[in-house]
């Protein structure tokens, strides 16, 4: 299959892209294209206008400051994954990115593109949700910040307005000594996960001082497993607490039984992954790694 015809706009600045976005009824933004172009090849997406961001040099910055890892819209997943400063500031980002598709996809695919695509089974929306990250949305009307919690609405749907584009994705820097882990299970290496779990936590004197657990693949959007977090908060992350967290996690699965996977299996899998990731994260926080 080949893409259907479209009007093509090679934007040279964010402002120009935003203007083009405002001027058209049905436009899409082309960053790396690794999610968009398959849907266009299959003619599932037949936009009137494609706004290509490849010439927008201001969108190629990757910066780390005290609070944030700032990933501009055209920064690839591979660049983010391999950047030493990013790894030092928040190692969970690289650990998660390593599980996104395959190197030949990550070399073109962008972080912002995956966030904007908002696939409920994708890793990066779950990562942003777990870390309480945020994005900058730009339009010709101005710009605003949208938190991860408010961004993902439904499978392949965000709360971005039709004239907005994401110019930057921001992940918080992890606190020193924080524990973290990402794990997922896909039937085949590199596929979208049947379930994936992201964990970040901190310990104070051996007790869980803060914890965030997020998951992908279990519903129409990335989900924070708040009850599982609550089961671990303040405790020592012992077997009993982990079992309680696992039990609490099961209820978050909303993906229905489909032709290949039962909902019950997904619950079993999610609970198991919560156990594994929490143990890994706790061990890392305790300096076990």
């Amino acid at each position: 299959m080949k893409p259907a015809p479209f009007d093509y706009i090679a934007a040279s600045s964010v402002a120009e892209a935003a203007r083009a976005r405002a001027d058209s009824d049905y436009s899409v933004l082309l960053a790396g294209g690794q999610s968009l172009i398959p849907t266009m090849n299959f003619r599932l997406a037949q936009p009137d206008v494609v706004i290509d961001l490849s010439r927008v040099s201001e969108l190629r910055t990757l910066e780390v400051d005290h609070s944030w890892v700032r990933v501009a819209a055209m920064v690839t997943q591979q660049k983010t994954e391999l950047d030493p400063a990013v790894k030092a500031a928040n190692p969970l980002i690289a650990e998660t990115l390593a599980r996104v598709a395959h190197p030949a996809i990550r070399s073109r695919g962008t972080v912002a593109g995956s966030i904007a695509h908002a696939d409920g089974a994708a890793e990066l929306p779950a990562l942003l949700t777990t870390l309480d990250g945020e994005v900058t949305a730009v339009s010709s009307r101005g710009s605003r910040t949208i938190s991860a919690e408010d961004l993902f609405e439904f499978h392949l749907t965000t709360t971005l307005e039709e004239d907005e584009l994401i110019s930057e994705v921001r992940f918080p820097v992890l606190a020193p000594g924080a524990g973290y882990a990402f794990d997922e299970f896909a039937r085949r290496h590199g596929d979208f996960a049947l379930a994936g779990v992201c964990v970040a936590l901190t310990l104070q004197d051996g007790n869980c001082e803060s914890i965030a657990i997020g998951a992908c693949g279990i519903g129409s959007r990335p989900v924070r497993l708040r009850e599982a977090e609550a089961a671990l908060m303040g405790g020592t992350i012992n077997d009993e607490e982990i079992a309680a967290a696992q039990e609490a996690a099961r209820g978050y699965v909303t993906t229905e039984t489909d032709m290949t996977t039962t909902q019950a299996y997904r619950r079993h899998l999610l609970a198991g992954l919560v156990g594994r990731t929490v143990r890994t994260a706790a061990a890392r926080a305790r300096g076990g790694e």
């Binding site: 996977t261 039962t262 019950a264």
Partner: peptide, 19 residues
Amino acid sequence: TSPSMIHEKLVEAGHLVEE
């Protein structure tokens, strides 16, 4: 077969409890 089908068998055998 698949992990999901194996899961069903374990549930059926009473080894895994499913709510």
